[in-house]
Design a protein around this nucleic acid. Structure first.
Lengths: 400, 400
DNA sequence: GCCTTATGTTTCAGGGCAGAACAAAAGACC
DNA sequence: GGTCTTTTGTTCTGCCCTGAAACATAAGGC
């Protein structure tokens, strides 16, 4: 007797076709930079106009797509009805970082509906207290939502190792938190029934680069992302998707750059973070630890020797660590985020030089270092995008 | 006017359902460790017996499944007809390594139908000459095939950076080859119309660990694979699939272990290969470069100081490099292949200790080092598996 | 005012699966 | 040995969803 396995892929039936095509229509509209007509959808997906129109009608009825007013176009033929992603569907993105708390609501069109970001030094803070403050922030944000908004879920970006499936934050070195369940601590402060999924801050920030709005690809599809906060997190994005064992991956900050180097709080030696983390950089430059990255950039650009030396040391360390990553995953594009984005122009020449020397395939695909402006608290946006992903993948579930 | 994009996902139709379910039935039979009846397939996939039987009939008619003789079972009810993957469908796996040439034909059941492996020192050899020899080897293997065999394609495993899409070997340091099109050099020696796809040797060897037969998952689904040849290649396997930019990835051998270390031929310094590559190991142990790995293992096990020191140094270097990889991809299982597999028992204690110290999430998911026996020239088997993958994914194309 | 053009809608046929009934092939039990 | 039970495999009918084509709609061009 053979048992049906839990995770086994199940067979396709007629309804699967409808489900798949509903998702395809929705994703097509979301991926477009402007409104699409029913006929456009048919053209892009290869469906007949009849099919595309019927599916679009269902999505409109369910609020997953919105019909805009017809705009007069100087063209023959019946004017098209523009379709855009439904504005009612929204998700809450939260971030609790060493330097800030953020709550942001994003809709299916990728617009920020409401947000609050509160800077503050949260290193060594009490998790219950901090998450209560985040809950209060959230409560404020939620009052700003239009009454017809449909909040589909919430995501929380955390700077550390996360077991996303179990909902446990295992270790966030720079917050000083470990082994706790943030959803439980937030629960009392959020609307009942609102699920909170966890994610690594760098993973989620990388998502905002790969996806500039829900379902809409960003400028880069394959890249190594580096999130410079107090620590350094990272993510590998392949084909627009963050890869790696979700929540456990991306600890680029603890890649060893110099095995004979100084001891790191993680237990290893010579970690990248000790050379290119924000505090390490500022300490090497002889600046106060709360100096903004922009100030360091200006000093280095002006030729201040300690600042220049600090940036050189960090570019060297980034070169060693990133060359290893690029050699292993084979993706020559590096995207810098966080404080490293602000230093990107100064780091790039030295960093690209180190990468060219250490990456085996550099002669054929030269490693490039780019920076993406990104919103403050990108992790919060990424968390919202992650939650909305479920709507894009399973629109049929949202239709009565 | 919106254009239909080339790579855009197309819409599902009725025939998609059939195509999908055909693939599901075939994959279900391939994934099973023993024969399945039509009723078993229905049970596993969730289809009705009627549907499962009809699809299975089509696959049997197309030769993708074989019906075995009914075996008497001591059980009530009508006896089942056992179904197994079709033996007619085969693929050719080739490997040209610094130490051997191999040609192997594998069928859909995962059995080796015919093979020839020829050791030899091919460092610095002439590509045309060597590939001609591989062609001759292949011709011999192909004569051993049953006359009803259907060879669906060929794959070639190469120890270096490969552009699989373009069919170009960019650089194979240990062969001394670069910038050539192996398929063109092989073409005259293979049956006309047989396509040859390229792949990185470590990627393909890793596939044999992830997939013990076409479509049948191996013992590990998520792991970092290390292929110890003269150089060291690697692959990251996630959910049973080799990830990374195909052919460009997996150069673990050139991850920097000591930036102040010796210069590597790749242009970098302190690469892992300089500590744990086969030649580096033997040189450090004071042994001839053609000493088998097993001899080194015996010497070290017997306590010979130079051998012990060489293994310690390589375990240290592997620890530094692999800790970086594990920190980035978040997969705590390391599988050793090639000469490293033979040394695995000696390397494991030290290596696991280094990993535990340097991997951030080690406290929650302790890194494990395992070895898998694997066939000689695993790359050839992996290449064949890769080619057969297409049959599993698109069985409908093989049915008239 | 009529033709052209493009969008959106209606109608009908066909492919493929689910469900149920049926046929087949064996063991269990008296 | 005959009948019941059990399991496998097959046949038949209805339903769902898409494709194709005809039709309706709403504009501009001449």
């Amino acid at each position: 007797m053979t048992q049906r396995l839990a995770g086994a892929p199940s067979s396709a039936r007629q309804s699967t076709v409808r489900t798949t095509n509903l998702a395809l229509v929705l994703r097509t509209v979301c991926a477009a930079t402007g409104p699409l007509s029913r006929a456009d959808i048919a053209g892009v997906t290869g469906m007949t106009r009849a099919t595309a129109a019927r599916l679009a009608d269902e999505l409109v009825a369910g609020g997953l797509l919105d019909e805009l007013e017809r705009e007069p176009v100087p063209r023959r033929g019946r004017p098209a009805t523009p379709l855009v992603p439904g504005a009612r569907f929204t998700a809450l993105g939260l971030q609790s970082d060493a330097g800030l708390l953020a709550a942001r609501v994003v809709d299916l069109r990728g617009r920020v509906v409401a947000e609050r970001v509160e800077p503050g030094d949260l290193r060594g803070s009490d998790p219950a207290e901090t998450l209560a403050a985040l809950g209060a922030l959230t409560a404020g944000v939620l009052t700003e939502l239009p009454s017809d908004s449909l909040l589909v879920g919430a995501g929380l970006a955390l700077p550390g190792v996360v077991d996303a499936e179990a909902g446990v934050l295992l270790r966030a070195p720079n917050l000083g938190w470990s082994d706790l369940r943030p959803a439980a601590l937030l629960a009392g402060h959020l609307p009942a029934g609102l699920d909170v999924v966890l994610g690594n801050e760098a993973d989620l920030a990388a998502r905002t680069v790969a996806e500039e709005a829900p379902g809409r690809p960003g400028p880069h599809r394959d890249f190594v992302y580096l999130s410079g906060q107090i620590g350094i997190g990272g993510a590998v994005v392949l084909g627009g998707r963050v890869t790696g064992s979700s929540g456990w991956a991306g600890e680029v900050g603890h890649v060893c750059v110099d095995p004979d180097g100084p001891a790191c709080s993680c237990g290893s030696t010579g970690c990248l973070e000790l050379f290119a983390g924000r505090h390490a950089l500022l300490r090497a430059a002889g600046l106060p630890l709360d100096t903004p990255a922009g100030d360091l950039a200006r000093l280095a650009a002006a030729g201040e020797p300690a600042a220049v030396a600090a940036l050189d040391a960090s570019a060297w360390a980034l070169g060693v660590a990133l060359a290893g990553v690029v050699n292993v995953v084979g993706i020559p594009t590096v995207v810098l985020g966080g404080h490293l984005a602000e230093l990107a122009d100064l780091l790039r020449p030295t960093l690209e030089e180190h990468l060219a020397a250490r990456v085996l395939s550099a002669r054929w695909r030269r490693p490039r270092v780019v920076s993406v402006p990104g919103p403050p608290a990108a992790g919060a946006s990424g968390a919202a995008l992650q939650v909305l992903e479920d709507v894009l993948t399973h629109p049929a579930r949202r239709i009565s």
